[in-house]
Amino acid sequence: MLKPRLIPVLLLKNGILVRSKNFTFHQHTGDPLGQVERYTAWKADELIYLDINRDDTHDFRETMSVIGSTSSNKNIPATMTNDVVSVIRSVSEKCMIPLTVGGKIRSIDDIRVRLANGADKVSINTQALDNPSFIDHAARTFGNQCIVVCIDVKRDPGTGVCEVYKHFGRDPAGMKPIAWAKEVERRGAGEILLQSIDRDGTGTGYDLALIRSVAESVSIPVIALGGVGKFSDFVAGLKEGRASAVAAANIFHFSEQSIIHAKQEMQASGIDVRL
């Protein structure tokens, strides 16, 4: 039987992993390679790397000198410097599970260079909103299966109305989540990564109403992201949210064997997971 997927999301800023809260507060959690083998051994079903650096390039070695030397830094090859592409290349050599890479993808060439360096799929966001035919073009060029469209959603605290945001959650895109999800499916997206900005880093659980409304309006898989604070939130995302896959970032960073424990809890709730 097909297993619902559990997917750790790793946020890269200036070449290091960070935890995020409400898309603004970023705390350093480690080097980008150290987690890969651990997560793979713990039976993560895929990995998603999102580059949330605001600038195009950075020197990774400078970053490491700022945060200081920790034991985990020994994993970093001397050749891994400067840009997200070299991070992808190093990660993919160790990654025996599907690898999705997102962040600052604006052109077909941006996709091509990520795939050529070992990514299996790319996640696109702002560029899809600015120029929706980019999705058609990307899907035709590389196949639907490697185009993931990330949809960032903010819920108005007063009215409860959801709206799609772009530019790292800064600017409203003038779209409603369901309408945009249907459009990206029609244009050839293979999957949707649906992220709640309000829940990011809060640990208060997924926005289940949002996830369910989108999952029921499209026939491509929807990956839920944003808000997981306890392992039972994954169960709710699949059962109540009707997501095909459940993703999270912060919860995996700070506990040993976190993915195995999450899957054990999912299995105990009657979900057939890969263990």
Binding site: K3, Q145, E191, P221, S244, R274
Partner: peptide, 10 residues
């Protein structure tokens, strides 16, 4: 069921 068939299967 949804298509594509994406994920881990026995």
């Amino acid at each position: 069921l949804r298509l594509p068939h994406i994920g881990w299967n026995d």
